[in-house]
Design a binder for these strands. Structure first.
Length: 345
DNA sequence: ACCGTAACGGTTGAG
DNA sequence: TACTCAACCGTTACG
């Protein structure tokens, strides 16, 4: 397995073409922005293109998530067995019903919502191909019995029901990127305390650590391992101060609730395989990550976990402007010794 | 100088 | 199993 990852952008930053920036950097971008640091300064500091900074911040402001979107895969089918069943029932009850009427009823009956309701043409096709002659009403009886029927579609594809996934009624700007699950995150922590991380600010360190070979490896965000029992800051400082290397790897993902629009196998946290099997043994960050155990609670603190706390906006945050009392310069210098070369320009 | 965004070449994963 | 396709990615360049 060759290490072909890593290109250097114009700013000297390391990136992997086609793949998301590590959560650590995404997190850093958002946090620096919250401290009032301008995107151009963030770009220079993190050596991430300003376009990327802009995009990540825009996404964050829109969805509340720092996580990348769902890469790959196919869109979920909307003609689930349950939908077909309902269409068939509508047709049985009213053989003269129009496809558009069926569509309206699917919405009215909450079988679908506006995000996953089949198109009229799809309904027509269903009527033609799957339902056909109603003289054979039992034709799809087996379909009716399928166990999947009991599983909400959004159980797998949450972004089909963004509203339903937002119990707190928070902003759901982009139906393609669910954020609702995130809203229950404990917010009793501060930006600064989350950021007891040094490595990812250093492009050299970042480059040395390299990228995991699969996205799952560095997308792991395990909120399940967090607990407010760790105090106001949510994170044990000792765990944070540990030499956290490339943070987006984790092998304790069992309780992670995905926040992104990933299909199950694509969701960082849902991935059930051992992380180690996807990690090149030569990557020293892997072993470091697995040693970040919380001594007192027995909680295993993975680097990715730390960042997960900032994967979403704080629920209480009602203003994009950073409330930091620090001056900008102080804010900059307070970030773990970051010394911005400042844009003093 | 800064910012938003389209184009581009790339990765990913369901079907 | 290999392939297709449409999603996403970050960088670059342009306005």
């Amino acid at each position: 397995m060759e290490q072909t990852y890593g290109e250097v952008n114009q700013l000297g930053g390391v990136f992997v073409n086609g793949r998301p920036l590590p959560n650590a950097i995404r997190l850093r971008i958002v946090e620096l922005a919250q401290l009032g640091i301008r995107p151009c300064d963030i770009s220079r500091q993190l050596r991430v293109s300003h376009g990327c900074v802009s995009k990540i911040l825009a996404r964050y402001n829109e969805t509340g998530s720092i996580l990348p979107g769902a890469i790959g895969g196919s869109k979920p089918r909307v003609t689930t067995p349950n939908v077909v069943k309902n269409i068939r029932e509508y047709k049985q009850n009213d053989p003269g019903i129009f496809a558009w009427e069926i569509r309206d009823r699917l919405l009215a009956d909450a079988v679908c919502d506006k995000y996953n309701v089949p198109s009229v043409s799809s309904i027509s096709r269903i009527l033609r191909n799957k339902i056909g002659s109603l003289s054979q009403p039992n034709q799809y009886e087996n379909c009716k019995q399928q166990p999947q029927q009991g599983i909400p579609y959004n159980h797998i594809y949450p972004y089909s029901y963004p509203n339903a996934m937002s119990p707190t009624g928070t902003k759901m700007g982009n139906p393609g990127v669910p954020v609702g699950l995130s809203r229950a995150w404990p917010s009793a922590h501060t930006v600064s305390n989350i950021l007891g991380i040094r490595a990812f600010m250093d492009p050299a360190a970042l480059a040395a650590e390299g990228y995991p070979q699969k996205m799952e490896d560095w997308g792991s965000v395990n909120r399940g391992t967090f607990s407010t029992a760790h105090g106001v800051n949510g994170i044990d400082k000792s765990a944070v101060d540990t030499d956290i290397k490339y943070p987006q790897t984790s092998s304790s993902l069992s309780s992670y609730v995905p926040a992104c629009a990933y299909s199950p196998s694509n969701q960082y946290g849902v991935y059930s395989g051992p992380a180690g099997s996807y990690v090149t043994p030569a990557h020293h960050w892997q072993t470091q990550s697995t040693t970040l155990s919380h001594q007192n609670s027995g909680m295993t603190m993975h680097a990715g976990d730390i960042h997960s706390q900032m994967a979403f906006k704080h629920a209480a945050r009602d203003d994009r402007k950073p409330p930091s009392p620090l001056s900008k310069h102080e804010a900059m210098n307070s970030i773990h010794g970051l010394s911005l070369p400042t844009s003093s320009s």
